[in-house]
Each structure stands twice: as C-alpha cells, then as structure tokens.
Design a binder for these strands. Structure first.
Lengths: 177, 177
DNA sequence: ACTATGCTGTTACAACATAACATCTGTGTT
DNA sequence: AACACAGATGTTATGTTGTAACAGCATAGT
C-alpha cells in the first residue's frame, strides 16, 4: 500500500484509481470553519468529562476529520507533522486508542483503518456500524438495528458487550456509475 | 503473542490463563473419527465443485478443525508440519484464502484469527457472524438476522454484497463462573 | 514543594501479511 | 506421446500493522 502522503489521500483514492472513476463520496472531509467547529466540540466534550484533548490527540482527530475516507494508522503517522515530519507509531496509536475510548473515532476492522465518528453521539458508547463501498472506498457510518442478533445471542446465554458490524457493497454513486 | 506451538493452544488458552479458570468452551475441536469425517465432507464438496483440496489446504483445514478456538495465521504456520517444522507464511495464507472462498473457514477480523465453518453450509456463501467470549476466547458462529440492517442500507441506496458481524461478550460458562 | 497519575517521546521489536518469481502438477489438445 | 495452459506450490525477501518497555514531563491534589 503506502499511498504517498501528499494531498492526504487515504484508502478511497487508491481504490478509486484502481477500479472506477466516480466523484468522491459521501463524506467530503471537513475544512476551515467546519473543521474548527468539530474540534471545538470535541474539546468541549472532553472538558465535560474531565478528559484531556492533548496535542497528539487533537492532531490525529483533525487528520481524521479532514479525510474523505478511512485512514490507515500509517497514513496518520506519515502526515502527522505539520512540517511533513512523520510521527512515531506509538504517538498515533495512543491517540487513536483515546479517540476510540471517547467515541470520537472508530476502527474499521476489515480495513485496518480509522474514521472520525460522524454521528452526533452525545449519547454514550454507541455501536458503530459501517457501509463500505468496494469501489470508491468510502465508509458511511450508520446506526444498526441489532435487536434480532442480540436476541439470538441472549437465547444462547451470551451477554453481549459490544458489536462490530461492517457491510461491503456499492454506494449509490458507484452503483449508478 | 506467540503462544508456543506445543499442545496446539490457540487464542483461548492464552486469554483463559490471563483472565479466568473456566473449562474449555463450546467447540471442543474435532479428533479421530469426527475429524476424518469433516475432512471427507470437505473433500466431497470440493469434488462436487471441481475444486482441489490439496495437501496444504487439507492440512490447514485439519488444524482449524482440531482447535478449540480461533487460530492465528502464525499459530497455523508454527504447527503446520507434522514433524514440527513450520510452514512458510504464503503456504498458510494461500490455504486460508482458498478455505474462505469455499466457505470452509472464516476470518474473524477483530481477532486476526481463523475458525473452521461450524455451520452445515451446503448452501452457498452465508454471512458469518460470531459471538466471541472476552473471557475464554471461544468464538461461536451463528446465523445472524440481518434484515433490519440491510433494509437500512438499501434505504440509503447501497447494494450490500457481504456483511461482517462480530459480537463480544461473555459466554454462558464464563458469565456463570 | 511533594507526590500520584496519566501523557508523551523514544527505541526497539513483535505480529501480521503479501510481492515476485521459479517450479511443479494436473488436464485437455495436438 | 509431446505440448501447452492454468492453477498450485515452494522460496526468498520484504512490506505493513501494532506494542513492550522505559525515561521524562505535565497536571492536579495535598
């Protein structure tokens, strides 16, 4: 893999180039005012919970928010420095751990990649579920209805603590194109 | 990680040792006659579809079937040789690709580990879903009811090709203990 | 100021996975 | 039988993803 750092590409561009020629997806990535507003909101939520949005955490969240698509840890590492200098891996992985704990970001297991949480989750730890486009690489978060699955689990005597749900397919744009 | 190869441990034992003292889980792992029968069934299904259950494929499937819990690729690599000699990584990864394509095995993304398919899936490519015990490491496959999630996806215009569903929690044994 | 706790920086390494290419094996064709 | 093709394997090397361990720093409570 190792998509170059310039222009902050992420997964989408790679898959895009390989497979189709559609316009970029559903989540344009934040810039300028919207970006600052999202970071300020995260800051505020941290203050409310006695957590600290320190510089590496803020920076990693910023990179995720700017991106159009899921980012790999090593994409974050490569683009971390404002001057172009890469971060050390633990810096980024620790920030990602924090962001996941706080619900600011999610890991997409099937991609080994990360996205900022796009849902207004003032509410606590929601279950993250994703629709991942095989063509353009975009990943859209949605609120799954897990009731049938959880019922099945309870019927077997399990106590479920968390659920990962990742669906692959084609987004509307790529399906049409 | 790197659990030693002796005794074919897998994930469960590692977590087990670390966290609790329950008896081994839901899927004892096949031996002797049951094992041979499962392998013969796989062989038969391959002949029916013009596929070849070659030696590395058969061996990797055998190791998965014998195990009590999900196995990491490098567990398979380490225990591959009947004489104790390890396999080369591509040997095992290629066999796993084949077994997944045929529906004989599944990858559990959140563990980077593999299990044999425990469902009588004569029927084609079913969606694999797992209940994973955080305590003993056992992973139980079940048939998820995806209708609500798929409906939501279609409502957004997505065409879903495949779904990954992994739930973590406590199995009945560990919950009780 | 003192100290406990959590965060950061750094080095080094472990764990997971694949590219590339040569060789072999089975199958169908000439 | 010889051939050629497709797919499987063996092998080397390398790429990608993730963490352990420890030293130093910052913040908040006493």
């Amino acid at each position: 893999m190792n998509v170059a750092a310039r222009g902050r590409p992420g997964l989408a561009e790679a898959m895009h180039a390989a497979e189709c020629h559609h316009e970029e997806g559903v989540h344009p990535g934040l810039k300028g005012h919207a970006l600052r507003r999202a970071l300020a909101a995260a800051q505020a939520r941290c203050q409310a919970t006695q957590e600290r949005l320190t510089e590496p955490r803020r920076r990693v969240l910023e990179l995720l928010l700017e991106a159009d698509a899921p980012l790999k840890a090593y994409d974050l590492i490569a683009t971390y420095g404002e001057d172009g200098a890469p971060a050390k891996p633990p810096t980024v992985y620790r920030a990602l751990d924090f962001l996941e704990r706080q619900g600011f970001a999610h890991r997409i297991e099937s991609l080994n990649a990360f996205v900022p949480c796009r849902l207004d989750a003032e509410g606590e730890n929601h279950t993250a579920a994703f629709l991942i486009c095989s063509c353009c690489g975009a990943a859209e978060e949605f609120e799954p209805d897990l009731s049938p699955g959880l019922a099945a689990a309870q019927a077997k005597g399990y106590v479920v603590a968390s659920v990962t749900l990742e669906a692959r397919g084609l987004c509307p744009a790529c399906r049409a194109g």
